[in-house]
Write a protein that binds this DNA or RNA. Sequence first.
DNA 1: CGATTATTGGTACTTTAGTCTCACTCGATT
DNA 2: AATCGAGTGAGACTAAAGTACCAATAATCG
Lengths: 124, 124
Amino acid sequence: MKMGEYTRMSGRLSDEIFFSLFAVLFLAFGYVMNQFIQKKKIHKETLPNEVQRIDQAKISELKISRREYQVLELIHLGHSNQEISKQLFISESTVKSHVSSLLQKLDAKRRTQAIKTAKELQIL
Amino acid sequence: MKMGEYTRMSGRLSDEIFFSLFAVLFLAFGYVMNQFIQKKKIHKETLPNEVQRIDQAKISELKISRREYQVLELIHLGHSNQEISKQLFISESTVKSHVSSLLQKLDAKRRTQAIKTAKELQIL
DNA sequence: CGATTATTGGTACTTTAGTCTCACTCGATT
DNA sequence: AATCGAGTGAGACTAAAGTACCAATAATCG
């Protein structure tokens, strides 16, 4: 479509009406264009800040087992090994085993550090 | 300014150029218009979800001192008492003192629980 | 200035946490 | 059948974490 075509349109549409139609059209286009730009921004900036769901892929990537992850969640809630053992119906020895392997897999020295790392990896 | 004025413009500007100028103008207007709408949305929806700044009032309400809070922050980063003592240039005994009073003030039994509670209270 | 609070630190002690090694079971895989 | 990973757990430690009590000094406030 070329500019100036409006002169070749049917006589029923006056220049003014046709012109305003184009104006509205571009107005809408500018609006939609901005929508796309905004969505891009949301995907690259806003989403990582607000949504942050758990990265299931990274969990298996680190070879964290189902049981280990449950322990990690309870650590995150501030529970002691003894409390965790009661909630999972296992001995405290077993909890310690899980915690130890968790710390290795998360490359942490303490459980508090494990929590921090796990959040950074979006595992928690 | 009325529609159709372009016919009365100087001959140097062809209809096409003038028309496209208007098109760009409306395009820009549509863009800016959307910008305002987006900013409104951000102010009414996004901000309350993402900001969640630290509640300074609650900190003094719980009578958490400046030093205690610094310790809390370092605990949050996963540091040990020894590491904290080195970073704050104080003895580990002092760190333990701060941690103990912190746990009391936050009504926590462990430092991991203190982290959780502090976040719930929007102190961290 | 006197009172209060914050900060610091020590000692002694108890409790959690964490490591290391070994071992048994169970289910899935090869 | 043999292997492997996951889950379980014991024992003996070492290392952190946390409590209780006490006390000195600095800073702040009325």
